[in-house]
Design a protein around this nucleic acid. Structure first.
Length: 391
DNA sequence: GGATAAATAT
DNA sequence: CATATTTATC
C-alpha cells in the first residue's frame, strides 16, 4: 500500500474530493499542477480501457468523463491563479448532465478512435479489414498493439461480454425474415437510447457499429462486427412470449472468427479428431455463449471440408494428417487431458487474423501446427488420405 | 449425425 | 440474378 515514494508518484485517493484535498495541502503550485495532470491522465487512461464496455457501463463512463472534465477545469484554474485553493467539491453527477454536461463531455475524448482496438480480438471491424481480398497483406502487418494491458485474458470471452450490451429488445413490430443481417430498424431504435443522454456522437456511433451491423456492406464476420461473436446467442430470439410457434426469428448467425475457429480446431485435436462430440468440443473450447448446436454445425462444415478437399489435393504423403481417424482401429482412445494429444487433425484453416491485442498470448500453447496463411478457407491444408474415410 | 432451409457472400 | 458458403434448424 505504501508504494508511493512521496511526491508526484501516483497515489490513489478514495474519492476525487479526497484527491483534491490532498492537492490543496501541497504548497508548491507546480507540484499541484503536475499531480493534477497525472491524475487526469490516469483517468483518461482508464476511460480508454473501459471504452469497450461503455454500453455495459454507461455510468462508469459518465463518471469518468465527468471527473476528467472537472479535473481539467481544476488544472486550468491552477494554472491561472496558482494561489487559490484547489478544493472544491467534486460533484459526481448532478442531474443535469444532459443539459450542460452532455455537450461538454463530448469533446473530451480525443482518443476515441482507438478505443476497443485493444480489446476485442474476436472480430472487430476496426481491426481486421478485408484482408482476404488482398492476401498480399495477409495478416502480417495489421497489428497495432499499442495499449492493451488490462485486457481480459480470454479474447473470446471478452467479446462475449458484448452480449450484455445488446440487451435491447427487438421492440414490437414485425421483423420480417431478415432480422439476421441488415437490420436497420434496430439501429434506429438503438440510437435513441434514452438512458444515456450524454452519449456523444461517437458513442452512438460505436454503439450501432457494434450492435448490429447495419451497413450491410462488408461485414463479414471476419473483419468486422466484432461484436458479433459471442453476443448474439444470448438474445437471439424474440423475447416475447410466443406460445407455440417456434422462434419466428432465426438466431443471429454466429461468426466463427479465426480465433474461435482456432480454438475449435485445437479442441478437436485434443479430443482426437472430428469424431469428438460437439459437447466435448464446446466444453473444451471454453467459450462462453457458444452452444452445442453451433459447434455441431461448425463441425459439420469442418467435416465436409475435410472430406472434400483432400481428394483433390493430392498431396499424399504430406505431412499433415487427416483429421480423423484413428478410430479405425481402436475406437476411442486418446484424449483426455493429461497426455499429449496430438491427434491428427488438419491444420489448415484460417489463422490469420489476429489483430489486436494481443495477440493473445495464448496462441501458442501447444504449438502444434499453426496455420499459416490461408485466410479463411481451410482448403489449403488438408490432405488426403483417406482410406477409411472417416469414422 | 446428417439433411435441409435461410442468409449471405461471390 | 445464380451459385456457393456458412450457419441455424429440423
Amino acid at each position: 500500500m505504501e508504494l508511493s515514494l512521496d511526491t508526484s508518484l501516483v497515489f490513489i485517493p478514495k474519492t476525487i474530493s479526497d484527491f483534491l484535498a490532498q492537492l490543496s495541502t501541497m504548497e508548491d503550485s507546480s507540484q499541484r499542477s503536475s499531480e493534477l495532470d497525472a491524475y487526469v491522465k490516469r483517468l483518461e487512461d482508464e476511460m480508454r480501457k473501459i471504452e469497450v464496455f461503455k454500453r455495459e457501463l454507461p455510468l462508469c463512463m459518465l463518471l469518468l468523463k465527468d471527473a476528467i472534465e472537472r479535473l481539467k477545469e481544476k488544472v486550468m484554474q491552477c494554472k491561472k491563479m496558482e494561489d487559490r485553493p484547489v478544493i472544491e467539491e467534486f460533484i459526481p453527477l448532478k442531474g443535469n448532465l444532459d443539459e450542460n454536461g452532455g455537450g461538454v463531455l463530448g469533446k473530451e475524448n480525443s482518443d476515441k478512435k482507438n478505443w476497443m482496438s485493444s480489446a476485442q480480438l474476436w472480430s472487430t471491424s476496426l481491426n481486421i479489414f478485408e484482408y482476404n481480398k488482398h492476401d498480399s497483406v495477409s495478416g502480417l502487418r495489421m497489428r497495432n498493439e499499442e495499449d492493451d494491458r488490462s485486457v481480459p485474458e480470454n479474447p473470446i470471452e471478452a467479446s462475449n461480454n458484448r452480449a450484455m450490451g445488446r440487451t435491447f429488445v427487438p421492440f414490437k413490430e414485425q421483423y420480417e425474415s431478415g432480422f439476421t443481417g441488415t437490420c436497420l430498424k434496430d439501429d434506429k431504435e438503438v440510437s435513441q437510447v434514452p438512458s444515456l443522454s450524454l452519449m456523444t456522437p461517437l458513442m452512438s456511433e460505436a454503439l450501432d457499429a457494434s450492435t448490429n451491423t447495419n451497413i450491410k456492406s462488408n461485414n463479414n464476420c471476419r473483419g468486422g462486427s466484432g461484436s458479433g461473436l459471442a453476443g448474439q446467442l444470448k438474445l437471439q430470439n424474440k423475447p416475447q412470449q410466443q406460445s407455440q410457434q417456434q422462434q419466428p426469428f432465426r438466431k443471429q448467425r454466429r461468426c466463427w472468427s479465426p480465433e474461435l475457429h482456432r480454438r475449435f480446431v485445437e479442441s478437436l485435436q485434443q479430443l482426437g479428431g472430428t469424431q469428438a462430440t460437439p459437447k466435448q468440443i464446446r466444453e473444451l473450447m471454453q467459450v462462453d455463449g457458444l452452444t452445442n448446436d453451433e459447434v455441431k454445425s461448425h463441425l459439420q462444415k469442418y467435416r465436409l471440408h475435410v472430406r472434400k478437399l483432400p481428394a483433390s489435393s493430392a498431396a499424399k504423403g504430406n505431412g499433415i494428417w487427416m483429421p480423423l481417424d484413428h478410430s479405425a482401429d481402436h475406437s476411442k482412445a486418446n484424449n483426455s487431458q493429461s497426455g499429449s494429444p496430438q491427434g491428427p487433425l488438419l491444420p489448415g484453416e484460417f489463422a490469420k487474423g489476429r489483430s489486436t491485442t494481443g495477440g493473445e498470448s495464448d496462441n501458442s500453447r501447444e504449438a502444434e501446427e499453426d496455420e499459416k496463411s490461408d485466410g479463411q478457407s481451410w482448403k489449403g491444408g488438408l490432405l488426403h488420405n483417406n482410406q477409411g474415410g472417416d469414422v
